[in-house]
Design a protein around this nucleic acid. Structure first.
Lengths: 362, 362
DNA sequence: GGACGTGGGAGAGAAATGACCAAAAGATCC
DNA sequence: GGATCTTTTGGTCATTTCTCTCCCACGTCC
């Protein structure tokens, strides 16, 4: 049934040399002195037999498996995880590594997390990537200590392992600034009620950006709800019923923004003419498909996966010391994705002909 | 830096027995007769030292790696892939296997696909799962022959490798029947323009279901467009401008359904009172968040991943012969997900008080 | 000029990686 | 002294890597 796979010794026999020589030739060992004619023969034989090294045996011998363990919470629930995996897989493969995936639940016990890590360690992975579903702080499994590891989208409470996270504040500033640049002066925000870093940092960035622009912050223009569509709908209605109705709203995420679209529709407000919106997350399925499409801020999932993997491999290969990085998480920018939900506010009630005359204030 | 990981010989030394005995005890080898007291000592020592077998070495010796290769096209672009991976990972892990992921591009050359497989084979995976982005027929890489493998969401042109696919037709029938059961007699469909199995089988199921219910099929109530939101919008407008305007539309997918919502909105039609809609795919982000939420048909991604993995492992362990399964793909049901986009049609123009009086026709 | 020594090129041998397994050896008992 | 129970020895898996041998040319010495 199984076609016995060809090994180094088959190649050696075919080329009429010893296994040592084959190994030397195929690995381009620096100190090995092998004649050119012999080299040729070896390569030819390997080619002809379709030889591929048994990476398990290599790993056993060299104590380096070329495998990276990837622990991800709830792989499936969000499309975001896919981008992280993709970033990790592509950079890993470019450097000859492969990724081994383990799914973990965010509700799992500390013990189960540890056994996830142990599983990977038994497989002799060279390093571990630990990705969470959303940005937060956590305490890593004990047995992760001493293993090259990088946290993706979360921070270690003890700052013992390095991590990479999105620049929530920077992204939020970008979003709000976009509204300010379009000429809005009364800007509302619909926020999340969860106690996660994003909630606080996006709100803070909102306030800061307004302040920097010399705009006043109005408490009554900020309302919080569950970060889903219905929450966005409710919060938006509340924001818009303020006597001091804003002309633009910064939404905690795209799902809440989707609720905001509906709220605007209910009140007969057109987007972006009567109400400009900016979201967060760049969930393509939503942002691209709303009408008009939603201007939003993208989380750098692919980039985080790639960054984490690059640095993990550098550490594995001794090119970097992860310890140095672990004091503070690395922060990656959240770029703005321009679509069509932002316009200048209608200039008073006089004409209504205001178009997308985006004006930039220096 | 590296805490030398404990090996079987450390355990042996600690327990004061030979390596062999440790192996016997820890693997519960049937023929090995080891005293109870010794067993105890071994277990205790293993526990105390935190011993975990080096699975690479085990694999090398036993010729079984306990690893399954997972090749997926475009892991990131669709949330669906995540569900397949999850299904595969969970069932694999329950049986002591791990999953190694490789991302492939749907546009890649035949050579690159083969090298993906070769990569996995060099890693000594016990079997390979090959998942595509959407249901279609393909010709598998040559070097996949002879390796236990299962295709997920696609079929092999040559029927040489087993596969598992969704029951497109069954799902479509369910969708259409739901509309019929609600009392609709003039039902339209907006279809995809791509030449993929789903396009044809969903249309055929649409016609068949109408016929089975004794309803006439009207060519002008079916329009095709690109299977995205704008396409759904356009197609719906065309369907609805028929003089014989339907009261319900079966949408090729949820994205097109989203376009249909907008088209309905533009024409002043309320969903579901004036127009009932059923989608396909159950893309939660869309289906759950549209207003009203969309009744749709779910693709069994998790189940396909799980089925494929279960059968792959069974084959690896000699409990099943995949050859027997490869003649015809295994078809998994697509369940209906009831939400709020379907209602009875308003009974003519007389009252308009028709409510959700779902009537079932036997 | 032949024996000896030297040096380096080309390749082979063998140990080691961590675990499994068949067969053989040692201990215990009657 | 055989039979039974328990443990050890040694080979194996596919590689890498350190050490070794072989071989020949060249130079030197007596």
């Amino acid at each position: 049934m199984t076609k016995r796979s060809v090994g180094i010794k088959d190649v050696a026999a075919a080329a009429g040399v010893s296994v040592t020589t084959v190994s030397h030739v195929l690995n381009d060992v620096a100190y090995a002195r092998v004649g050119n004619e012999t080299r040729e023969r070896v390569h030819e034989a390997a080619q002809r037999l379709g030889y591929g090294p048994n990476r398990l045996a290599q790993a056993l011998r060299t104590q380096r498996s070329g495998m990276i363990g990837f622990i991800s919470e709830e792989i499936a629930t969000t499309p975001h995880a896919g981008r992280i995996i993709l970033g990790a897989e592509e950079t890993a493969r470019a450097r000859g590594y492969n990724i081994m995936i383990i799914n973990s639940t965010s509700t799992g016990s500390q013990d189960s997390r540890e056994s996830d890590v142990a599983d990977l360690l038994d497989r002799q992975v060279d390093g571990i990537l630990y990705a969470t579903m959303y940005h937060r702080k956590l305490s890593v499994p004990k047995n992760l200590a001493g293993v090259p590891a990088v946290l993706v989208d979360s921070e270690d409470i003890n700052h013992s392992v390095s991590s990479v996270i999105p620049d929530e504040a920077g992204g939020a500033r970008l979003a709000v600034q976009t509204l300010i640049d379009a000429g809005h002066t009364r800007i509302g925000m619909i926020n999340n009620t969860d106690d996660v870093p994003a909630t606080h940092s996006r709100l803070k960035a909102f306030k800061d950006t307004l302040a920097d622009a010399g705009l006043e912050f109005h408490e009554e223009l900020v309302h919080s709800e569950l970060s889903e569509v219905p929450g966005g709908y409710q919060a938006t209605l509340r924001v818009l019923e303020s006597p001091n109705r804003p002309t633009a709203i910064f939404c905690y995420n795209d799902r809440m923004a989707m609720g905001a679209y509906r709220a605007a529709g209910k009140l007969g407000l057109r987007i972006p003419e009567d109400l400009s919106l900016v979201g967060f997350d760049n969930q393509q399925l939503i942002a691209e498909n709303l009408y008009p499409s939603l201007t939003t801020v993208a989380l750098p999932h692919y980039e985080m996966g790639a960054w984490a993997t690059k640095n993990l491999i550098d550490a594995i290969e001794g090119k970097t010391d992860l310890q140095l990085l672990s004091a503070h998480p690395t922060v990656l920018p959240c770029p703005l994705v321009l679509r069509h939900s932002v316009a200048s506010p209608l200039s008073g009630a006089d004409d209504g002909s205001a178009e997308l005359s985006a004006r930039t204030n220096t």
